[in-house]
Design a binder for these strands. Structure first.
Lengths: 143, 143
DNA sequence: CGTAGTCAGTTCAGATATTGAACTGTACTC
DNA sequence: GAGTACAGTTCAATATCTGAACTGACTACG
């Protein structure tokens, strides 16, 4: 995955996660640490070479950490870093959107109340949510 | 883009937008209708063949509508549908994440207060936001 | 009229990435 | 010792992407 656009944060993020598989790896790691074989089993149809590539890229980007759980047959498991956990919002937004078109058997829930959550806009200054209709993308030499 | 996973809403969404360019098209169309040449100019480095493919896919998915603004040299412009506008949250989440690692010259702002907004989790039942640490992905045969 | 330019793409050949299938090496289990 | 699990790697075939050039329909200028 080649770095193309340093300027736009969207494009910069897509340089890392802009493919069919990477965010599925993140999706599954959001549940907790997983081994290669577990990821392979839970991401339907992923070729092992791709999984290997993606894990290396995510590790290089600081999204995932590889941890050895056995030395002598070298075995490792993968865990999201804090940076990686922040990608959960992206996965959640994709899930919310997809839920409207495919029947959902996956949901984001608030641990405390047990209800399903959405991903929405929020103004941290005013401490209130912002409806989609009120949000604009702006930028100086925006891109 | 081949449909692989009907089951998981994340994977289903990535079947459409899981590549380096598609969400950049959405990003720019969030500002309003654009012509082919305008999209081409604003998405740095996109080959016209790719842009053409992506617009067709987005149109087929009901995310974008093509509108003729001239008949006789056939000329069209592209507009997001309501469905497409809902992808703004995904773009916003990517932007938020990217902003932490690349200097930002693009932001989401609330039209009313003018402040920058984030993309966060929200429980519509309890009508409150949910911190990332409290949100889990759950699912029956979740994937 | 003739030349140049714009616009919305298409075409094409070469480069790159993805795919599925098979394979490797280490170790554990029976 | 045979079979299995795990964590990947290797490879050839295929698919996709890329950049560059090209169409075809018009408009603008002189």
């Amino acid at each position: 995955m080649i770095q193309r656009s340093v300027r736009c944060p969207v494009a910069a993020t897509l340089d890392l996660v802009g493919d069919r598989w990477t965010l599925l790896v993140v999706r599954d790691l959001l549940r907790g640490r997983l081994r290669f074989s577990e990821l392979r089993a839970s991401i339907e149809g992923i070729p092992p070479a791709i999984l290997s590539h993606r894990l290396k890229a995510l590790e290089a980007a600081g999204v995932v950490v590889r941890r050895a759980y056995s030395e002598h047959p070298p075995r490792s498991e993968y865990v999201l870093t804090a940076k990686g956990h922040r990608l959960g919002v992206v996965v959640g937004a994709l899930a919310n959107w997809g839920e409207q078109f495919a029947e959902s058997d996956l949901a984001l829930v608030d641990n405390q109340c047990g209800h399903g959550v959405n991903v929405i806009y929020h103004c941290p200054t005013c401490e209130r949510t912002a409806p989609r209709s009120r949000v604009r993308i702006v930028g100086a030499n925006a891109r």
